[in-house]
Design a protein around this nucleic acid. Structure first.
Lengths: 138, 138
DNA sequence: CCGCATCCCTATAGATACTG
DNA sequence: CAGTATCTATAGGGATGCGG
């Protein structure tokens, strides 16, 4: 999508899509929140093979939008840690609803992925598990 | 976004975003499902001012993906009616979750819009009302 | 006039190669 | 590891066309 914003808008859908309504944003949020990735290289190596300049752009946009914080990795001098904020975690229902729809209509969905099993079995429990990963974060 | 598909994918999010993960698709679905629009010109005249070539493209993609059907308007010889299928209606939870998030963070949301009131007051009732609009459709 | 599609052109999303 | 630089494909804005 063109990443140009349509602000200000009275429509909450337009507002939301201007932040994450493109081909890559929700996949980065998936990696951040569901797959618990934290480093630039982790996102780069996702199956979908996001380009590094796009990744840089989206992470910066997320920081500006208050969805992500960037901190130094204490374990690695030259490494940054990208973490989701509560504003990003509140997109879990969006991701879950999209996953439910995709699960239903994508014949290639890999149901052997543990998260898929959890989503079908007990969505609320999965949500709690995901959120608990961040309760100890700053 | 680039509208090139990443099929086949084992991820339900990737699958879904390849269908509606761009700047315009969910807005057209909003118009179809929530605002009950049916004609090409109605979509064109939405506040967001979608270009006619983009609209043509997305409607065709939706038809191919089984989200929309195109029929003749009995009341107007040279007019088509675009209607959502059940596969599209099952995206109501996706739209609602996005609206909830947008409502929370968009200071410019127009809460005087009746649908916004309904969403906050009783989401299930709103969903039932929307679905009832289509129960008499083919 | 209206409804829907197509054309043209430019801005930019994004793939690939390269760098501190 | 975490970006930049370069280049190309294309998304999409605006005008045009065409039948009713």
């Amino acid at each position: 999508m063109s990443m140009t914003k349509r602000y200000p808008t009275v429509c909450p859908i337009v507002f939301s899509l201007d932040i994450f309504g493109d081909k890559w944003s929700l996949l980065i949020l998936r990696d951040l929140i569901i797959l618990n990735k934290r480093h630039f290289g982790d996102f780069l190596r996702s199956k979908e093979r996001i380009a590094s300049n796009i990744l840089t752009d989206r992470l910066e946009r997320f920081i500006q939008a208050g969805l992500v914080t960037k901190t130094d990795d204490p374990k690695n001098k030259s490494a940054a840690i990208y973490s989701p904020t509560s504003k990003a975690l509140e997109l879990i229902p969006v991701m879950f609803s999209i996953m439910h729809w995709g699960l239903k209509y994508n014949p290639d969905t890999d149901m052997s992925i543990p998260v898929m099993q959890e989503l079908k079995a007990d969505e609320k429990r999965l949500k709690e598990r995901l959120l608990s990963q961040f309760s100890d974060a700053s």
